[in-house]
Design a protein around this nucleic acid. Sequence first.
DNA 1: ATGATCTAGTTTCCTAGTCAACCAAATGGA
DNA 2: TCCATTTGGTTGACTAGGAAACTAGATCAT
Lengths: 152, 152
Amino acid sequence: MDAEQVSELEDHLGYWLRIVSNAVSHAFARKVESQGVTVAEWVFLRSLYDRSPASPTQLAEAMGMTKGAISKLADRLVDKGLVLRSASAGDRRGHSLTLAPEGRRKVPALAALADANDADFFGGLDAEERDRLRQLLHRIAGGRGLDAAPID
Amino acid sequence: MDAEQVSELEDHLGYWLRIVSNAVSHAFARKVESQGVTVAEWVFLRSLYDRSPASPTQLAEAMGMTKGAISKLADRLVDKGLVLRSASAGDRRGHSLTLAPEGRRKVPALAALADANDADFFGGLDAEERDRLRQLLHRIAGGRGLDAAPID
DNA sequence: ATGATCTAGTTTCCTAGTCAACCAAATGGA
DNA sequence: TCCATTTGGTTGACTAGGAAACTAGATCAT
C-alpha cells in the first residue's frame, strides 16, 4: 500500500464482492423474471409470506429500502394482483399489506428458484466452504448491524 | 429444503452477499462523493489510469456495462473535465478515451478511499480470513469467467 | 380542547442504468 | 466495385430507486 502507490481495483475485497454479488443477483433476476417478478418483488413477497400483514414502514425496514420505494413496489404488486392493500384498523393513516392468494401461491416456486440460483453459484464449493463463506458474511454484516440493506 | 418447504431469504448465500455488497458499495459511494465522483466513475477512472487510452467498447467490456451506459458515463466525465474524448487514429468510427490531467490527479486520492473502505469493512477479519474470503470469491467469479460484472 | 409536533404514506423530481433503434464507417464477398 | 453485413458509438424510451416536499392523521402539552 506504500510500495504500490495506487491500489488496483482488484486489490479490494469490496470489488470482488460487488462483482460476484451482481452476477448472482443478475442471474437470479433472469430466473424470477420467468415468474413475472423482480428480485425486489420476490423479497417483498417472501417477507410478507410469514409476517403478514405488515405495514409499508415495516417492510421498508425489513428490506432496507425507503418508504417511497416500498410505496411504489406495493403499487406494482397490487396491480399484479399479488398483494392486497387495506386500511389498518385503529390508525387511519396506516395501511395493511397482505399477500393475495395468487401472491401466496407464487412464493414456493420463487423460493425454489432462489435455491436453484444458490446451487448454481455456490454448488462448486463444498459444505464446509459454504459454511465458512456464510460465517464471514454474517460477521461483516453483524458487525455493522445489517439485518437488511438496500436492494439498490 | 424438503422439511422446510419454503426456504427463507436468509438461507441463501446470495442474499447475504447482496446485503454485504450493497452496504460496502453504499459506504464507498458516500466516501467518493466527497471527491465529486460516483463509484462507476471511480472504476472508469481507475481503469483508464493504466490502460489509457481505451475505447468505449474496451471500457464497457472491462466494467461489465453496456456501451450505452459507458457512452453516458464518458459524457459526464468529459463534462467534469476528468476525461478526454478524441478521435482514434485509423478508424473514424472509434473514439479514444484518456484521462485528463485533473482526472489522473484524482485517482490516488480515490484509491486511498477504496483502501479505507475495505479496511472499514474487512479490518475486523484477520489476514487469513480475508485471504480465504478473497479466494472463495475468486473461485466463484473464476468459475463463471467473471472478470467484470455489471455495476448495476 | 387546541395548537405544536410527530408519524405514515405518497408524490415529485432526479439519477443512473438497460434495451433497442439508430447512424456512420469498415469489411468482405460476389 | 458495390452491396450486405458487421462493428463502434450515440440516442431515446423506459425502469427502479433515493431524497425531499408534501398530506393527512395521531399524539401530547398546556
